[in-house]
């Protein structure tokens, strides 16, 4: 029987550092809720807004798969592997932190905020050699289909990570519905609504709501109004 967890947008943790406003679906830094630590391998889902000209100074990471999805604006990335890049809306960035990396991220546009999702997954291997990648999401304007942006397979669509996870973005028109088939038994799905309203197996979700479902083989998703959402299939045991 399907198990579910609902995280309404207004129940997320909030951190306001002036230059950074962060809405946190799971416990992070000063926000600790023992009932919201992770959803399977999904450990962090931060909905961040960075003021123009500001950003994260150099800081370390290890043993984590870190995915950034810009929603508006752009971020300048610099890391200890020698990568210097700008990532903007319509792209996706991935880092496998492995044995350890240092990086900084700044909003280089002094006049406009950068909005992005910061997503961390537990890896399926510890102490891998760190790696960085970013790609343009070429299919992201397509409507009424699941657009794969991440998988565990180097040769599949989107970026890849060290975890049996699949991410899809979707832009559904009002009343459009589609069934999502899970790739792997034992996985669950966490859906995060970027905009609009959808139902997932009958559960109504609104902008920035999160909904986790597991012990299922498929999900029925319907747009109540025009909607954009991110669907994250992750192992529940890892």
């Amino acid at each position: 029987m399907a198990q579910t967890v609902l995280h309404k947008a207004n129940t997320r943790g909030v951190a306001d550092h002036g230059w950074l406003k962060s809405y946190q679906s799971f416990s992070f830094a000063g926000y600790y809720n023992p009932d919201r630590v992770n959803f399977g391998a999904l450990r962090v889902l931060n909905d961040d807004i960075v003021t123009g000209g500001m950003g994260f100074g150099e800081h370390p990471h290890d043993n984590m798969e870190i995915i950034s999805i810009p929603l508006e604006g752009e971020l300048q990335h610099k890391d200890s592997m020698g990568n210097t890049a700008t990532i903007k809306a319509g792209e996706i960035q991935v880092m496998s932190a492995g044995t350890g990396i240092f990086h900084s991220e700044y909003n280089s546009d002094k006049n406009n905020p950068a909005k992005f999702l910061q997503i961390w997954l537990f890896p399926n291997q510890r102490n891998v050699t760190p790696r960085y990648d970013q790609i343009l999401l070429e299919n992201q304007t397509k409507r009424n289909e699941f657009i794969q942006i991440l998988s565990p397979d180097k040769d599949d669509e989107g970026v890849w990570i060290y975890q049996n996870a699949w991410f899809n973005l979707a832009y559904f028109d009002t009343n459009y519905s589609q069934t999502y088939q899970l790739h792997q038994q034992g996985n669950g799905v966490y859906i995060f609504v970027l905009k609009g309203q959808i139902t997932v197996n009958g559960q109504l979700l609104e902008t920035r709501d999160g909904f986790g479902v597991w012990e299922i083989d498929s999900l029925d998703i319907k747009a109540v109004v025009d909607a954009e959402f991110l669907l994250m299939e992750v192992p529940m045991e890892f």
Binding site: V44, H59, P60, D62, N63, M64, A97, W120
Partner: peptide
Amino acid sequence: YGGGSGLLY
């Protein structure tokens, strides 16, 4: 996990 990041606490 995370290298002294937001997960530590």
